[in-house]
Measured scan of single mutants.
Amino acid sequence: DTINITLPDGKTLTLTVTPEFTVKELAEEIARRLGLSPEDIKDTHNGKTLDPSLTLAEYGITPGSTITLEIK
């Protein structure tokens, strides 16, 4: 299953994830792909900052969802 990550420059990154991924694991994968530190990444969905300890499923993030990435 894939989700879309909207980057600060407007580009989109597509990642393969499972509903059990935590937001922290997602940030780590994004950081790895972009050459950043996971601590520099802030993920938001529907205007809410995502708690790193919760899973994508707990936020109702499903395949095809879009998450907005902010760099701290």
Rank of each mutant, 00 (worst) to 15 (best):
I71W: 10
T49K: 13
R32L: 11
F21Q: 12
G35Y: 04
T16W: 12
K72Y: 11
F21V: 07
E20M: 11
G10M: 04
L7F: 13
P19I: 06
I30M: 05
L54Q: 06
T49N: 09
F21C: 10
L26H: 00
S37F: 10
R32T: 07
S53R: 07
T22A: 01
N46F: 15
S65W: 05
T68D: 09
P63I: 05
T44A: 13
E58G: 03
A57S: 09
T16R: 10
I71D: 05
F21S: 12
T44D: 09
T14Y: 08
P52Q: 13
K24L: 10
K24V: 04
I41M: 06
K72H: 13
K72M: 12
L54W: 09
G60D: 04
T55H: 03
T22I: 02
G64C: 03
A31V: 05
T62L: 13
R32Y: 10
A57M: 11
T18Y: 11
T55R: 05
G10N: 06
V23K: 00
T18N: 09
G35I: 01
T14C: 08
I67V: 11
T14Q: 10
L15V: 14
L56F: 02
L15S: 00
L50S: 03
P19F: 05
E39K: 12
K48P: 09
V17K: 00
F21K: 07
E28C: 07
E39Q: 14
I41T: 02
T62S: 08
K11C: 10
R33W: 14
D40F: 14
P19D: 07
T2A: 08
S65H: 07
L69P: 02
G64A: 02
F21L: 13
P8A: 10
A31S: 08
V23S: 01
I61F: 08
T6H: 14
I41Y: 08
T18L: 05
I30P: 00
A27K: 13
V23R: 01
R32Q: 09
L50R: 02
E20Y: 09
N4V: 09
T2G: 06
D51P: 05
N46G: 09
T62P: 05
F21T: 15
P19H: 06
D40Y: 15
I61G: 01
V23P: 00
A31D: 02
A27W: 15
V23W: 14
D51F: 03
L36R: 09
P19G: 04
T62A: 08
S65A: 11
I41S: 02
K48A: 14
I5M: 03
L69C: 12
T68N: 10
E20C: 08
L50A: 04
L26R: 00
D9E: 05
I67D: 01
P8L: 10
D51E: 06
T16S: 13
E70Q: 09
I30A: 02
T6I: 15
K42I: 15
G47A: 02
T18M: 05
V23L: 12
T2Q: 10
A57Q: 10
L13Y: 09
S37C: 10
E20S: 12
D40G: 10
